[in-house]
Amino acid sequence: MTTVATKPVRRPTGRRTGVSKPNGWWGLAFIAPATIGLIALYVWPFLSTLMKSFQDVPAFGPATFVGLDNYTALIGDGDFWKAFRNSALYTVIILLGIPLAVVLAALIEQVGRGRAVYRVLFFLPVVTLPVAIGMVWRFIYNGDFGLLNYVLSWFGIDGQFWVADPRFTIYAFGVVGIWMGLGINLIILGAGLQAIPKALYEASSLDGAGRVRQFFHITVPLLSPSIFFVTILSVIAALQMFDLLFIMLRGVNNTALTDSKTIVYLFYEKAFVQFDQGYGAAIAIVLLMVIMIATAVQFRLQRSWVFYG
């Protein structure tokens, strides 16, 4: 950044673009706090993680350079692929929650008085401690005494051990994840809904369009930028899922944990439980790439469905 300040670039045309000498200094001074924060909290940790991923890092003491060893070990590690599948499955489930959020947002928008009450209700999980959420859902999902199985028994359905049987854990977490993310999504989508001109609804109802038709032909297309934004955020958050697993399965000796680990959980386990920070760093870098690819793909796909008016 100092090079920019001391050697202002002059374009051949002679037009003064970019920063000129006296103003450049002040500009940099203004952004310095943010820049330093960014470098200290994001850029530096990223670079050090990247570096560690090429090293064998013991818990304490000097690291040794091992080239791509961590990455080749990762590719051959069945646990990693299992975690990858779990994370992918969880992300898909979370994505299924987005249509739900859109419908709910539209319904809440219809509510005249008391709209705020619904918003608060849906937002509560966002401001609740994940530990508390984990405890409550553990009770709901309990195979023997759980609320869910109790309700299912009214309909003569035999309940399952939702978070103790690896066949169901990811789905069970997916439901909690959707519920937890709903609050934020509804706020974003609600703001998007308010930006849609009411005249469009009035005009279309004069033309005889019903509520459902309006939803699919006015609400969804005009809301698509917000939906896109929510999707990007949800996918990133879903790929980073860790807390639910940590709270609900670890520390309680749950044998389903072995088959339910997500990528971030595996990272935690390698780096902080088994002291293998180099391997952990490699997992983190791979996850970063997965998130970047997933986001890039979404940006590419948006051209065909997001409508910017």
Binding site: Y141, G143, D144, F161, V163, N253, N254, T255, A256
Partner: peptide
């Protein structure tokens, strides 16, 4: 069973 003990610790 293990599942029961996973849901409710021993």
């Amino acid at each position: 069973t293990l599942k029961q003990l996973s849901d409710t610790e021993a």
